[in-house]
Design a protein around this nucleic acid. Structure first.
Length: 654
DNA sequence: TGTCCCGGCGCG
DNA sequence: AAAGCGCGCCGGGACA
């Protein structure tokens, strides 16, 4: 306990048997409950049977507030219901959604605010871990025993529950102390982080905040705390999956994969595992003697190997049967392993699936989604088995999916106050055509009709001869503008752009120059983003979230360039995340569940997915769209357009 | 059996 | 000389 100079109060312990048989214990409990009920903030933690949020239950729980720490048996939970139902209470937790799920699994619903110390920590130290043990050590200098060090490794052989059951018999006092330490550390860390957040001045990327945010504490208190509850509700609801769809697809996929494996072995003349990068390298570069076109990054070992990724395989595919087979194999085994089998393994008994939305992972302030990741489910055009159609509504409901149209580009135009780009959005133009029109001085109408002609030729409504040189040129202009529009947010260089457009590096550079000449305010915005990040060390988003970009001051040129790309991208990507986050909070406040039985289920960065009784789909969708378009108390210089659809599955809703 | 890293790839 | 941001998950392979 080095450096720990705060008084550590004795741990109180309560369990049902004791308070029912011993009057003095019952009296102590009453005093304790009264004190707890009067606390505005209580740190709370659970020791559980496992990590599955919809299934596992608490075995012990612990609480802490100034001067007090206690561990309680799970059999005491029901006696505290009146306190758990208090509306005006902050529950301080490390990884708040998890404990809230575990408690809900035994009918304990925390009515107050869910205050997550991990999220607090992530606002200040986004490049550090946010686990409780780490925070206690780094913020308070307190190192205390890790669960697995003291009670044994959790694994296949022994579950968390078994370890706790054994500790109950063999070392109950250690168990009580351990549980209390977690709550105590959570409280200490909370107080420290609150002070630090209050002292951390910040500002909006837009120089005006909506709502008004002066410090990181404001950001946490006004935005992140209510957002935790929104995410918890989504995780809790889960989304229904068509189990039969997965079970139908599984053997199909397996069969396709095995057929391809056979073909590969036949074609190469020996057993080759197409999932092994090692064996593929040996085959293509040693045996077949292809020249590599790309090398891997090396990672920690620094070993750079020639790459057999899809870029290489596609490059040789026209003349190489094995490459074509490996590409197909990759496609199908990805779908099988990650989505068909992966999703099936995580269904709950009602065929719903519960992702975890992480609020403290992405350095830009975006969410991440895990176990399973529902933010990377394949789009229909890349998915033979149509997995988005396996996400279905409950009986009598439909799925609603609403997404922002070019959110990041709209925010770029609004942040840069680029009048011509703002004009394109104001006219409701296709942004890529609009960019192309201004960059290459071509009438917008020509670009529009070129796209229409292309479509008609492809569907055989027009002869091939309709594709004149000029039409081709117009299509190329739009493609170039599109690639630049997306690429520049990421700091894409001329080499990469040239590759994606089949142009020389010099020609690609010319296009980039044309873009920057067309939009001087955007050019200036990028330069200012870099300059400010260099000056302050931080990149700021619209809600005043900040990211420390250490790379930008590096003496290494490539690292500095990375820092510049991060500085630009964080402002745009992070602000887009802010927009969606605000919309979600507003939507939750509307209480669509109460009014329409409509539940928010998923967030995929710029898309929200709902489940809604059929008869209310129209009205609910209108209200959702309205709030998504106006996430802040005042509107931005660019209208935030959204597009929505509904249907009998996620796949059908778009 | 469990853990780590790597190459590769799904999404926005 | 080269320079694409942000995530999470799978299987292979090395190692304890």
């Amino acid at each position: 306990m080095s450096g720990w100079n705060i008084h550590l109060p004795a741990t109180e312990y309560f369990e049902l048997g004791l308070v029912q048989t011993q009057p003095e214990e019952a009296h102590k409990l009453l005093t304790f409950m009264n004190e707890m009920a009067s606390q505005p903030r209580v740190a709370i933690d659970t020791e559980t049977t496992g990590l599955v949020t919809w299934k596992d239950i608490p075995l012990y729980w612990s609480v802490a507030w100034p001067g007090k720490r206690a561990t309680l048996h799970a059999n005491m939970l029901q006696h505290f219901q009146a306190i758990f139902k208090q509306l005006k209470k902050d529950w301080i937790m490390a990884n708040a959604k998890y404990d809230t799920h575990i408690l809900a699994n035994v009918g304990v619903n925390l009515a107050g605010r869910l205050v997550d110390t991990c999220v607090m920590h992530s606002l200040l130290y986004e490049d550090k871990p946010h686990g409780l043990k780490y925070m206690a050590q780094h913020l308070k200098g307190w190192t205390y025993g890790d669960f697995q060090d003291q009670f044994g490794k959790i694994g296949k052989l022994q579950s968390a529950e078994e370890l706790i059951r054994r500790a109950e018999k063999e070392n109950m006092s250690l168990l009580i102390e351990y549980a209390a330490n977690d709550a105590w550390a959570t409280w200490q860390v909370y107080e420290e982080l609150r002070t630090q957040l209050q002292m951390a001045a910040t500002h909006s990327l837009f120089r005006t905040t909506y709502p008004y945010i002066e410090t990181l504490w404001d950001l946490f208190d006004k935005i992140e705390v209510p957002y935790t509850r929104v995410l918890w509700d989504m995780e809790r609801a889960g989304i229904k999956v068509d189990r039969a769809h997965l079970e139908r697809s599984e053997p199909e996929a397996l069969q396709e994969i095995q057929r391809i494996e056979k073909d590969i072995n036949h074609a190469v003349g020996f057993i080759l595992n197409p999932k092994s990068p090692l064996q593929l390298r040996d085959y293509f570069f040693e045996k077949e003697g292809y020249p590599p076109i790309k090398w891997s990054k090396g990672g920690t070992t620094g070993v750079r190997n020639p790459s057999c990724d899809s870029m290489f395989l596609e490059h040789i595919a026209p003349k190489d049967e094995v490459a074509r087979l490996v590409l197909k194999h990759r496609e199908y085994s990805k779908l099988h392993g990650t989505y068909i089998k992966g999703l099936h393994d995580l269904l709950d008994p009602t065929d719903r699936i519960h992702t975890r939305f992480n609020q403290d992972v992405a350095r830009t302030g975006r969410l991440s989604s895990a176990t399973p990741n529902l933010q990377n489910v394949p789009r229909p055009e890349n998915d033979k088995w149509g997995l988005r159609r396996a996400f279905i509504p409950e009986e009598g409901c439909e799925i609603i999916a609403v997404d922002y149209e070019q959110l990041e580009m709209r925010l770029l135009a609004a942040a840069a106050l680029e009048p011509d780009m703002i004009g394109i959005f104001a006219r409701g133009w296709d942004i890529h055509m609009g960019n192309a029109a201004l960059m290459f001085n071509v009438p917008y109408e020509d670009l529009k009709s070129a796209k229409a002609i292309d479509k008609q030729v492809k569907s055989k409504q027009l002869p091939e001869s309709a594709m004149t040189d000029y039409v081709h040129q117009c299509l190329e202009h739009r493609a170039a503008a599109k690639a630049i529009g997306f690429g520049l947010n990421y700091g894409m260089g001329a080499g990469k752009l040239g590759h994606s457009l089949n142009l020389s590096r010099a020609d690609a550079q010319k296009k980039i120059d044309q873009y920057k000449a067309t939009y001087p305010a955007v050019k200036q915005f990028f330069e200012e983003a870099v300059a400010e990040t260099l000056r302050t060390g931080y990149s700021f988003t619209i809600l005043g979230r900040r990211r420390n970009v250490i790379e930008i001051a590096s003496h290494r040129k490539d690292e500095r360039a990375l820092g510049e790309r991060i500085a630009i991208n964080t402002q745009i990507q992070g602000s887009a995340a802010d927009v969606c986050k605000m919309a979600q909070i507003h939507i939750a406040n509307l209480d669509l569940v109460k009014h329409y039985g409509c539940r928010m289920l998923l967030q995929v960065h710029d898309e929200l997915v709902f489940e809604c009784p059929k008869e209310n789909v129209k009205i609910a969708m209108e209200e959702i769209k309205e709030l998504m378009e106006h996430p802040f108390s005042s509107d931005l210089a660019v209208h935030l357009a959204v597009d929505g659809g509904h249907g009998d599955s996620w796949g059908a809703a778009k």
